[in-house]
Amino acid sequence: MEKRICTIERNSPVAPGCLRMSLTAEESLLHRCGQFVEVAVPGQYLRRPISVSLSEEGRLTLLYKVVGKGTAALAALKPGDKLDLLTGLGNGFDSSACRGKALLVGGGIGVAPLLQLCRDLRAAGREVSAILGFNTAAEILLREELEALGARVTVATMDGSAGIRGLVTDALQEAGADYDQAYVCGPMPMMRALYPLLPDASEFSLEERMGCGTGLCFGCTVQTTEGPRRICHDGPVFKKTQLPW
């Protein structure tokens, strides 16, 4: 955990209700992909946990959806504004656990951390395919970015306006994806539906309402096979075998 004040370079919509924010950062602020940041938002008492989409030298990129007052206040910030954030939170995905072909599955704004994960996997020479699920074609995020990294991307939309009509589970069966290791991030119902379909080594990034994001308040606890665990501190990424679903 590190506290930083970063300058906003860009904060603009990428899909209805979704924004991409890039921040200047001298060095990479993550130890592993799948970690998150807690940002102080004007007018709100608690910080808000936000996924990191890319962490490079010189720049940190966040992808977020406006769901309440906190994220609405975040969306109102302008380039040049300063943002107070806690960085390098949580455990992140273990990209080195993939020895063969990787499958990434993301739903909605949950696709955010898959971009850095894909980059890390490709840098290690892994073949990557991705299944991304959204409600409609207008909400699609990160497809081009993942394709540009060399990932084979399948999109599923609930209304059939793009790709396969239906859920990511439908796309998983239809696409007959070929993979050794799966990484999942999205809404809880999506992850629970995927759970029985994926191998034991699969990694799931969970979400829950958080208080502190740093392990101090025990607000975001989930039951695991190893006992109660704090999603912010012991997760957000858990192996399938840790989840008693």
Binding site: Y45, R209, G211, F218, G219, C220, T221
Partner: peptide
């Protein structure tokens, strides 16, 4: 103790509610 079910935290003006 596992504690209460989630959500356990709610933002408020000037503070928060917790039900850990």
């Amino acid at each position: 103790r596992f504690g209460n079910p989630t959500p356990r935290i709610a933002e408020c003006t000037g503070g928060l509610l917790n039900a850990v």
